[in-house]
Nucleic acid binder design. Structure first.
Lengths: 197, 197
DNA sequence: GAACGCATGTAAGGGGTTACATGATTTG
DNA sequence: CAAATCATGTAACCCCTTACATGCGTTC
């Protein structure tokens, strides 16, 4: 039982899911491919943490709808208060920034613009999701309550949006810095190319 | 040559470093242990991308001070404009939030308070670092310029601080939500424990 | 008609963590 | 006096990515 397994249990605690759906839902928090999830689910099923019902589909392979078992819930409850490891982040763009000073300045601009675009798109999607969830929760009666399975989804979505906004602002800030430079010494560019101390 | 190797090259483009120093410096952007970095540096040395000078130390094993070679710089320049893969994030806390609704509500509070503390500490350190860098750059003459090796460090630090602040605000927001709940229905707690639909 | 989404699985290989090994100096 | 920091390295193992494999329906 590794972290990802517990994460799958946590998602399943909110309701039955197929492996494919789990793979999609876990992406924002923990990147994992289907090739990692399917074998894990099979193992967890053998250990009695989850169970599945095969749902036949017309002209397609069976869909396996997984749900958490009582012993799965027990395992999940025991995991939550255990010491939580710190988040892991690996960002190629940030690595490139250490070396960008000896590259073409317009390459630096491109780097930031690309990232700005990805996160602009992401924030649009997230906003839409958040609104949908809001309406859902209002229909479900009460306000955002801890005891509701939607609670986790809600604060996670909010966080994702906050993060996307931060990312965008940071890109815009950096681009402004770069453009100031570019206009100030437009021909010192050649001077820095190909030289190193 | 994988991403981490290029990252090490990027760091070395800013000046000579020991493997140990590289390991420390790369942490905020790309978590890697010394056991991964030392063998990589050895390979890169064999491929002529970096070179090292052994500096003897009293009563300690030799310190290897690495520096980037001309062919290392060429490789670095070629890497920067290549397509950049999206950041990877794995956060155990966020996984736990999906399952927290069936656990003790005070466990949820603990989860957020722990994270808030870690990022409060981190932000204090980052602020100090940023001020040091600011002074350094003022002494070095010009304003924050792209052509300075410090440029990458500067925008990276700024970003790390932004991120820490966002993380803190999010924790405080979530804690407020949780405390509202706790005071509103202090005995619905038992009602939700041990039950599932 | 090529590409994407749904839907499941396996295999190989590279990337990353944990543990083993050593040893002096400094800090709490 | 124990723990952390500096400093390097190896080995085993697990985690994760990439690629292979299949097949239908829908969208551009």
């Amino acid at each position: 039982m590794n972290t990802l397994s517990y994460g799958l249990l946590a998602l399943l605690s909110q309701g039955p899911c197929t492996g494919y759906e789990l793979m999609l839902q876990i992406q924002p928090v923990w990147q994992a491919k289907h090739s990692q999830i399917y074998p894990l689910l099979a193992k967890m099923e053998q250990n009695g943490l989850v169970q599945f019902v095969a749902v036949p589909q017309k002209e397609k392979p069976d869909k396996k709808v997984y749900s958490i078992t009582e012993s799965g819930i027990a395992a999940l409850r025991q995991w939550i208060p255990e010491p939580t490891s710190e988040p892991v982040k690996r960002d190629e763009l940030l690595l490139k920034l250490y070396g960008v000073w000896l590259a073409d300045p317009e390459k630096a601009v491109q780097l930031f613009e690309e990232r700005l675009q990805t996160f602009t798109k992401r924030s649009v999607k997230l906003k839409a999701f958040l609104e949908t969830l809001h309406k859902q929760m209002e229909e479900e009666g009460g306000t955002r309550s801890l005891s509701s399975p939607s609670f986790g989804r809600y604060i996670l979505l909010k966080r994702a949006l906050d993060n996307a906004r931060m990312e965008m602002e940071w890109c815009e800030w950096a681009l402004q810095l770069l453009r100031e430079q570019g206009s100030l010494d437009s021909d010192s560019v050649q001077g820095n190319l190909g030289k190193r101390s």
